[in-house]
Structure formats: structure tokens, C-alpha cells
Simulated assay, not measured.
Amino acid sequence: MSPADHVTAPDAAPPAVSLRGARLGYGRRLLWDGLNLDIAAGEFLAVLGANGSGKTSFVKVLLGQTPLGEGTVRIGGQPARRGSRAIGYVPQQKNLPPDTPLRARDLVGLGVDGHKWGVRLRGRAYRARVDELLAQVGAASYGRIPVGLLSGGEQQRLRIAQALAPNPQVLLCDEPLLSLDLNHQKAVSALVGRQAKRNGTAVVFVTHEINPILEHVDRILYLAGGRFTVGTPEAVMTTEVLSGLYGTRVEVLRSNGRIVVVGRPDAVIDGHHVDETEATA
């Protein structure tokens, strides 16, 4: 793509996320180079790849925690920076201890005013915003229950509500389906998908498993062995494309609407052996 293809009209809103000539590596290990990527408002981008391919590093770049080696990254037209309220962040699912006294609504409330210093006066506007967020993620019925007594899926709904509190331009989800059962995976995926389409929030969804989110995904960024490809699920998730990325034969199988990526058991990808489980995307 030529530089002219990236020019934005003066009166057009900037992309929610924009990377230009992005390069990142650690020592002699290159994660990606020459990455040009725009993510539009309301677009759902899945980020896939094997362990060690750079998915976590991609998250840290967008959060402003890891600087690029070369190139630029912008969120809503502004340079990526730590603590940006333009990004809502949903971390990996980790169950809170059962004796955690914090109520569900209090956890969500941290997204409303947790960034403020000093004593916080939580009045009518604060309570109304928390109620709105709980309703938005379908958690109103357990808003006053201690979070430690809730299931993993219920806790993850609260984390999404917390991330949505500042009305972010970008919702960044880092492996949010880990440790969830299939029903909760589908529920959380649908919740995030609705946020993208109804509210025009750009979603960056890092995952090992594409099937629970497949119906919501617009495009995929697939990272592998220092290389990458970007495109629709139909264009990216093919035997030819993934074999080219990994430099070895990788089979992409489709069955009953599901996608399974299978590498040879003796294949070596990015310096380590890959079995069928690890290569499943």
C-alpha cells in the first residue's frame, strides 16, 4: 500500500487506532516490522498467534507501556500514552478470592472515579453511572453482592463494565475468555461484540481461540515468527496463508462453523516445538 493510501481527509475523524511503520523487537528477536494498521470506530479486530508471537507486546504498545523501536502508534489521533482514558482495558480473567469484600458495584465504580486523587464524593451522578454500566453488561441483579462470591463469567462482565466507564474509543481485551466455560465465553464475546456495533467502540480482542468470537470479528491481525498478516477471517484463516506465515505446513480445518488450526507435531515454529493444542487458534 502506498503512503497516499493512508492519507486522511482534513475533515474526517482519525482512526480509533493507527500504527504506521511499526517495528518492535527485543534484542535480535523481531516481533514485527513495517506494520501499518488502522482500526475504525466500531470495528472488531481479533489478534491471534502462538505463544511468544507478540500478542502481549501489542497490547502494551497500545497501552503506552512499551515504546516502538520504529514508527508511531496513535489512539484517536493522539500518541499512545499510559493511563489514557481513550482506552478501556479488560485484563485476563482471574477469579478474585472468595473473601474479597468489595461489592460488584464498587468494582465497577472504580472505573468511574478510580483515576481521581483524594476523597471522592460519590453522589447521585456517580450512582446513576454505575447503575447504567451494570445494566449495560447485564449485571444489575448482583450489583450488591461481594465480587468474590460471583462466578468467573460474572466477574468478567464487571471488568467490562469498569472498562466502559470512561466511554472509551477503544476497548482492549487481553485474553478475556481464559478460564471461562463455553457458555460464559459466548456471553462475554457477545457483550463485547454488541459494544462495538451499537456504540461505535473499536475493539482489539487478543485471544488464543477464535471460535467464540468468530461471528463478531471484522478483521484479524495474525502474528507469527516475526511476520504478520491482516485481513478478514475468510482471507487470513487459510492453510496457504498460515503456512506462509509459519514457514511450515499448517492445516486449517473447518467443521460445523468452527475453525481448527493444526501444525505438524514435529514442527518447529519460532524456535520451539508446536503441538496441535498450541497451534489451535
Rank of each mutant, 00 (worst) to 15 (best):
M1G: 15
A4P: 07
A4N: 14
H6W: 15
A13P: 15
P14E: 12
P15S: 08
P15D: 10
V17L: 02
S18Y: 03
R20N: 08
G21H: 11
A22W: 00
R28F: 00
A40H: 14
A41G: 12
A41N: 00
A41V: 01
L45V: 12
T56F: 03
T56H: 05
F58E: 04
V61Y: 09
L63S: 12
G64E: 08
G64S: 08
Q65F: 12
Q65I: 14
T66L: 15
P67L: 00
G71Y: 01
R74V: 06
G76N: 06
G77D: 01
G77P: 01
Q78P: 05
R85E: 09
A86Q: 13
A86C: 01
A86W: 01
V90H: 05
K94L: 15
P97L: 11
P98T: 14
R103E: 13
L107A: 14
G111R: 06
V112E: 05
R120W: 06
G123K: 10
A125S: 10
A125M: 03
R127P: 00
V130M: 09
V130H: 00
D131E: 09
L133E: 08
L133W: 08
Q136G: 08
G138L: 11
A139M: 11
Y142R: 06
R144K: 13
S151K: 11
E154H: 02
I160Y: 11
L164Q: 06
A165M: 10
N167M: 12
L171S: 09
L172V: 07
P176G: 06
L177A: 05
L177Y: 02
L180E: 10
L180M: 13
L180A: 00
D181H: 13
L182P: 07
A187Q: 15
V188W: 07
V188A: 14
R198M: 11
H208F: 08
E209V: 15
I213N: 00
E215C: 12
H216F: 11
Y222A: 14
L223D: 00
A224H: 03
G226P: 05
R227C: 03
V230P: 04
P233T: 06
V241Y: 02
L245P: 02
Y246C: 10
R249N: 08
R258I: 05
D266C: 04
D266I: 10
A267E: 07
H272C: 11
H272V: 10
D275P: 07
